[in-house]
Amino acid sequence: MSTALTATQPRTSTGSGRSIAGWIGLLPALLVALVAGMSAIDPQFYGIINILNILRNASFLAIVACGQALVIIAGGFDLSVGAVVALASVVTAKTMAAAAVAFPGNNALIIASGVAAGLGCGLLVGLVNGFCVAKLKVSGFVVTLGTMSATAGVGLMITSGIPVYGMPEAFVKGFGRAQVLGLPTAVYLALAVILVTMFAQRRTLFGRYVYAIGGNVDAAVVSGVSIQRHIVGTYVLSSVLAALAGILLTAQVGSGQASFGGDRMMLQSIAAAVIGGVSLRGGVGRVEIVAISALFLTILGNALNLLHIDSRLQPVFLGVIMVAAVALDELSRRRKSRV
């Protein structure tokens, strides 16, 4: 749907480019204000345990949001990421448990097979999404709505909703809960994902073509960009990154659960992308800002918890901030384009 819309509604790229530049300044400022305010109110906030907790959770969200951002920049949508996190988690755990029985003691093989199976799930869902959107031309919203339901169903079917145990200690204690130079392993992986995506966005043909497709799909076709291949690529990346987050979550918790991810992770990843300046009209957005906004959302949730704000009321804050962020962006774009 979105690709069709962007095709019929060419935008003024100069206006939105400037407003995004405005955002780059605003979001870190908000982040600093939030951190400073919370540190003043509650010393628990800058305790080492809380900071590690925030960084770990922000890493999971940032990894998923990176993929989501790529899909949105190309003019699509991926509603299935939350379900992929869950499926990758249970498949990884199941495979490791089975491999542990088949090859006792061979940790390298057990872990490799589990991780491969988990990432394989992501690859598969991404290919289905990409195929339906690019080749069959079904709207990305509907396709991923369908695969979300199907993927969540498969995850629950495999486990009957019961957590899966039986992963080797080396995977849980040696990787998932391990710390390198004082930071959880997930943080390094998230940084690697962000840096690679940044590089891809700026310096590779794939990254440039993704912007081109989202910006003006007709122009991209005329310029000889292979639209289908690159759209499939964005959906595959999004699902594989979601699967990676699922595997990391599994390693940290120590069991595979079909309740990981879910609607919450999906909505948060879209919120992170959108607050991070990714335009739902496609063609605009930078992954490093998305990562900052993932950190911002995580800290916001953490702050609301520390301030003892009823967890039931917390979604209200998230909703208001999301709408306000996008409304501000839209208004500043209008003002700029009027000048």
């Binding site: 949508f77 039931r312 209200v316 998230l318 909703g319 709408v323 409304a327």
Partner: peptide
């Protein structure tokens, strides 16, 4: 939010989605 502020319907209603959930669960505990 959608018509006057020009926010994409997806984001606008995702925002009110969160707000309505928060209000519903808070009012009813």
């Amino acid at each position: 939010v959608i018509a006057l502020l020009g926010v994409n319907p997806f984001v606008a209603t995702l925002g009110s989605y969160n707000i309505a959930i928060g209000v519903a669960t808070t009012l009813s505990a």
